[in-house]
C-alpha cells in the first residue's frame, strides 16, 4: 500500500469511528426532541432579550423579534438547564435584558412562539450549544455549537 493510500485508509477509519460515535449519541433527555419541536423547521431568530430564566428543567430566554412588516413578536427560546449551559460556557451573567442574541433552532410543533435554542450566538460573539443534552438533536454530545 502506498503512503497516500495508507493515509486515505487511516482518514477513512477515523471517519468511521466519528460516524459510529455520532450514531451512538444517547437519547435520555427530560423529554424527546420531536415530541415538542419540528425537525423539518429550522429557524433563526435575531432579537433583543426581554427576560432570562436560568432554571430547571430548561432555561428560557425571551426575545423581541422584529418582523418584516414592522411588528414585534416575543419568542420563547428553550435551552438546556443551568448546569448544561454553564458547562458549555454560557454563565448566567453573560447576557442581560436588552442584549441582542442570534438563536438558531427549531420551531415548536404546536405553532406557538417557541423555539429550541440549539445554537446561540452570545453578545460577545461566542457561538455555543444551547440545546438540551441527551435529546439527540444536532450538536448533542459534540464539542462546540451544532453544525
Amino acid at each position: 500500500m502506498t503512503q497516500a493510500r495508507r493515509a486515505k485508509a487511516k482518514r477513512g477509519s477515523a471517519l468511521a469511528v466519528l460516524l459510529a460515535l455520532a450514531c451512538a449519541t444517547p437519547v435520555f433527555a427530560h423529554h424527546s426532541f420531536s415530541a415538542e419541536f419540528d425537525g423539518d423547521k429550522p429557524v433563526r431568530l435575531v432579537g433583543k432579550i426581554t427576560k432570562v430564566e436560568f432554571q430547571n428543567p430548561h432555561s428560557y430566554f425571551y426575545l423581541d423579534v422584529l418582523r418584516k412588516d414592522g411588528t414585534v413578536v416575543n419568542w420563547a427560546c428553550e435551552g438546556g438547564g443551568p448546569g448544561a449551559l454553564s458547562q458549555h460556557g454560557w454563565k448566567k451573567g453573560d447576557v442581560k435584558v436588552g442584549d441582542t442574541l442570534v438563536v438558531d433552532g427549531y420551531l415548536a410543533r404546536d405553532g406557538s412562539h417557541l423555539v429550541d435554542a440549539r445554537r446561540v450566538t452570545l453578545p460577545d460573539g461566542r457561538s455555543i450549544y444551547g440545546g438540551t443534552p441527551g435529546d439527540g438533536g444536532p450538536g448533542d454530545g459534540q464539542a462546540g455549537p451544532p453544525r
Binding site: 427530560h30 438547564g81 443534552p133
Partner: peptide, 9 residues
C-alpha cells in the same frame, strides 16, 4: 446539575 453536559452524564 441536570441536565449537565452529556459527556459528564
Amino acid at each position: 446539575e441536570v441536565e449537565g453536559d452529556g459527556a459528564t452524564l
